[in-house]
């Protein structure tokens, strides 16, 4: 039976579709032309400009702050939540599961406006604080489901085994549960951090004066700034993310 070539061709087509815009953007970032578009020769000057641009660095700092707070809190809440969903059955957990699942399907705009309404209604000043609260909220669900996914690969009888061998609840938690969960918690944390660093829409709704994160800053550059700086910033961010992905791959392979 001859295999159809269609899937292969579609695959290659899709890969081109996914990568070409990226390649075009990176190419543009080395274009000496002031307005982008036509090729005017190779240059690194936009990258140099980037490093002199204070607001970008301030925004990056804000983003890191929010991502660290968001990741820290959501990892604790999400891990507990995933553990509870795994460990218990019954009415409470059904409600819990739907509650944790719902934020995953709600579009960002909706979450952004609803949080804005909450903050405005309760008189909380918008700023890094409200952004952090928002980020914790959408990260919890992701962490919880990553942890839950990990837990489902476990053989739960190891918990019985620990108790059978003389460990109380506390010892079992510290010596068995936590070490076994560590990789799951770590991937949940990486995911939460990435989502937080990347979020624009929700952040945009609940940001206040002086709390510009990197994506919000990129947005205002796209709307009002010169293309050349964004091109360079894009190139830089892509280099950083690809570097991190490669590093992560190597790390994962080594820990296997």
């Amino acid at each position: 039976m001859r295999r159809s070539r269609l899937p292969l061709l579609a695959g290659i087509g899709v890969l081109l579709f996914l990568y070409l815009p990226m390649v075009a953007l990176v190419a543009q970032s080395f274009n000496a032309s002031r307005f982008g578009g036509r090729w005017m020769g190779f240059s690194l000057k936009w990258y140099a400009r980037l490093f002199e641009n204070r607001p970008i660095w301030d925004a990056l700092w804000n983003s890191l702050f929010v991502a660290l707070v968001g990741t820290g809190v959501s990892v604790v809440l999400g891990t507990l939540s995933g553990w509870a969903m795994h460990r218990y059955r019954g009415g409470l957990q059904r409600v819990h599961h739907s509650l944790v699942y719902a934020p995953l399907v709600v579009p960002d705009v909706l979450m952004g406006i609803s949080l804005l309404l909450l903050f405005v209604n309760s008189g909380v000043p918008l700023g890094l604080g409200t952004i952090s609260l928002a980020h914790i909220t959408f990260c919890i669900s992701y962490v919880a489901f990553v942890v839950l996914g990990r837990l489902q690969e476990f053989d739960d009888s190891v918990l019985d085994a620990a108790r059978d061998l003389g460990a109380g609840w506390w010892t079992t938690f510290w010596r068995v549960v936590l070490p076994m969960l560590a990789p799951g918690i770590a991937s949940g944390a990486v995911l939460a951090f990435t989502l937080s660093i990347d979020d624009f829409v929700i952040t945009f709704f609940v940001a206040g004066p002086g709390s510009t994160t990197l994506p919000v800053h990129v947005y205002s550059m796209i709307r009002h700034g010169t293309p050349t700086l964004i091109n360079a910033l894009s190139g830089l961010l892509m280099a950083v993310t690809f570097g991190l992905v490669l590093l992560g791959q190597r790390f994962i392979r080594q820990s296997r």
């Binding site: 990226m22 953007l25 990347d198 624009f200 991190l244």
Partner: peptide, 17 residues
């Protein structure tokens, strides 16, 4: 992998294209 780059930059790339 391309989706690890920022959401806005993925959109902006198309603006370039």
């Amino acid at each position: 992998v391309p989706f690890w780059t920022n959401f806005l930059i993925r959109i902006y790339a198309w603006k370039t294209v």
